[in-house]
Design a protein around this nucleic acid. Structure first.
Length: 526
RNA sequence: GGCCCCUUCGACUAGCGGUUAGGUCACAACCCUUUCAAGGUUGCGGCACGGGUUCGAAUCCCGUAGGGGUCACCA
């Protein structure tokens, strides 16, 4: 039988790392078994619905490279893939349960239910619907419903006995039926609850393996009861461990950045995020920790999932990202991804070789694309700003800079070895520690003291530019290291931003369709 | 609180009756070095606890403790 899995997110907010996590395992499991992976939108909560969330979730999957075989976008034989467009299906199934006496219409108002809850609390009784609406004769239910009286449809459940289902990872799980209290299947607004819609859709769409988060374990018996009520075969249930906040509670945006858009904006790479997520609760048979989707798919074994809830550790994510940046992705690939970000800063990246050199020397020094861009300024800016440590170095390096300027201008072989030899010879001549000479030089070339090797800098910048920068630094020293003119800096900043805007426009034009709207805010949303 | 699930270094994990309990991240030290990184070497640090079963338990069973989830007309 063909394997069919699905991811069924709700469009209620930012694309969530948990959705990516569960999506990843569904995707890989389907791929591993030559099956299909379905994306279904569970948009049955009209209160929490957020327009635009669907597109952003789909965009997240596209970014991660987890392509659904069927989705609202891609279509497929089992559509529609939005539950809000399947209401007729749910109503038909509810009618079936009503007709066979397995469900009933309950007419209690929200206030009545609340009062019942309070009463149960007061008497220290178990909380939950007490089945009081069950006894209303079916004809009466139908009459009141037809009369337009608000109601919900509930599944009839017994308190006797227990319900057992098999979880692939946990074995048999048994829950007393007394814990299941006539769950609502159809809400009074005519939308199905998760339980009903989920079961109906999974069945109709041919889902064979339900891979979802552990939080669903305790409601699985409801689903089992529904499958039985419809006389349908059960899918296999596989409950993944829950991703955790650093304090071990279930991941939440209160305690952790759970927005994949946010990570994307911070310059994280989809490959790194996926690889990081893949290591949460799962491991390669051979113990490899760095692997791509192809390898994961080839080796995937769902039974290797471990059940302790893994803490989402940002430091580890960063280290994965850094690893991909500096070691795993080819230089050209990294350059290609940094380029648009540099252009957004107004930097000119038209010289491909220069860009490659810059990225090459910067990537072991950055953990994210954004950090790389932040460090790249001095490679692209017209005028350098000298930070405090740089000023200090310049103040003590005037004669060295003058000498180096002369030596460099006379240098015959301008390549790495040539420059390196020149510098070393000069330092030896002067009989001073390397840093005495090289730190002022680094300051002159970059405006800062944390930067790549001086030889690298000179070779990348080129003889001309290096000499120009040394010259400017000397002028700056002559002027007595004046403070930056805030007005001038502001002007420059403005000019760069304008250039960036230009760059953005031309890029959009050349690429065609504009990129998806970037995620905004979302911080105050709920 | 009831019910359900889980439990190996600070974090992610390997282990599936016999291992000096291994790896990665983090942290620390040292090396390299021209600053910052990267890289190399080393170190730190763990089987929650108590009972069984067994010649032998991190591994199997029971209990305790701890953690988490769930008890909605949210998913």
């Amino acid at each position: 039988m063909e394997v069919v899995t699905r991811i069924a997110p709700s469009p209620t907010g930012d694309p969530h790392v948990g959705t990516a996590y569960i999506g990843l395992f569904n995707y890989v499991f389907a791929r591993r078994h030559g099956g299909r992976f379905i994306f279904r939108l569970e948009d049955t909560d009209r209160q929490r619905y957020q327009a635009g969330a669907e597109a952003r979730i789909l965009e997240m999957f596209a970014w991660l490279g987890l392509r659904p075989d069927e989705s609202p976008e891609a279509g497929g034989p089992n559509g529609p893939y939005r539950q809000s467009e399947r209401l007729a299906v749910y109503h038909a199934h509810v009618e079936e349960l009503l007709a066979s006496g397995r469900a009933y219409r309950a007419f209690e108002t929200a206030e009545e239910i609340e009062a019942m809850r309070l009463e149960q609390k007061r008497l220290n009784k178990p909380i939950g619907y007490d089945g009081r609406g069950r006894d209303l004769p079916p004809a009466e239910q139908a009459r009141r419903h037809a009369a337009g009286e608000p109601n919900v449809v509930r599944l009839i459940t017994t308190d006797e006995g227990s319900t057992t289902f098999r979880d692939r990872l946990r074995g048999d799980v048994t829950i007393p039926n007394s814990e299941i209290r006539d769950p609502v299947l159809m809400k009074s607004d005519g939308y199905p609850t998760y339980h009903l819609a989920n079961v109906v859709d999974d069945h109709l769409m041919g889902v064979t393996h339900v891979i979802r988060a552990e939080e669903w374990v305790t409601s699985t018996p409801i689903h089992v009861l529904l499958y039985r009520a419809f006389d349908w075969d059960l899918p296999e249930f596989i409950h993944m461990p829950l991703l955790r906040n650093p304090d071990r509670s279930k991941v939440s945006k209160r305690k952790l950045d759970t927005s994949v858009d946010s990570y994307r904006q911070q310059g994280f790479l989809p490959e790194a995020l996926l690889n990081f997520l893949a290591n949460m609760g799962w491991s390669m048979p051979d113990g490899r920790e760095y692997f791509g989707m192809k390898d994961m798919t080839a080796e995937f074994d769902i039974d290797r999932v471990s059940l302790g809830g893994p803490v989402f550790d940002l430091k580890k994510l960063r280290s994965f990202n850094a690893k991909y940046l500096r070691d795993i992705l080819p230089l050209e690939e990294v350059a290609g991804r940094v380029k648009p970000l540099l252009e957004d800063e107004g930097y000119d990246c038209s010289d491909e070789d220069y860009l490659l050199d810059v990225v090459d020397v910067l990537r072991p020094r950055a953990e994210t694309l954004v950090e790389l861009v932040d460090q790249a300024g001095y490679f692209f800016r017209e005028t350098l700003r000298y930070d405090e440590s740089a000023r200090k170095q310049l103040a003590s390096g005037q004669t060295f800079l003058q000498d180096i300027e002369r030596e460099l201008s006379m240098l015959e072989f301008f390549d790495y070895d040539g420059v390196d030899d020149m510098l070393r010879d000069y330092v030896q001549e002067q009989a001073v520690p390397m840093g005495k000479v090289l730190m002022p030089l680094r300051a002159a070339l970059t405006g800062t003291t944390n930067a790549p090797g001086v030889t690298d800098l000179i070779v990348i910048l080129g003889k001309r530019e290096s000499l120009a920068r040394i010259g400017k630094a000397l002028t700056f020293i002559d002027a007595g290291l004046p403070d930056d003119d805030p007005h001038r800096l502001l002007e420059e900043e403005k000019a760069r931003k304008a250039a960036a805007e230009e760059a953005r426009k031309s890029r959009v034009k050349s690429v065609g369709a504009p990129p998806a709207a970037p995620a905004t805010g979302g911080k105050g949303s709920r």
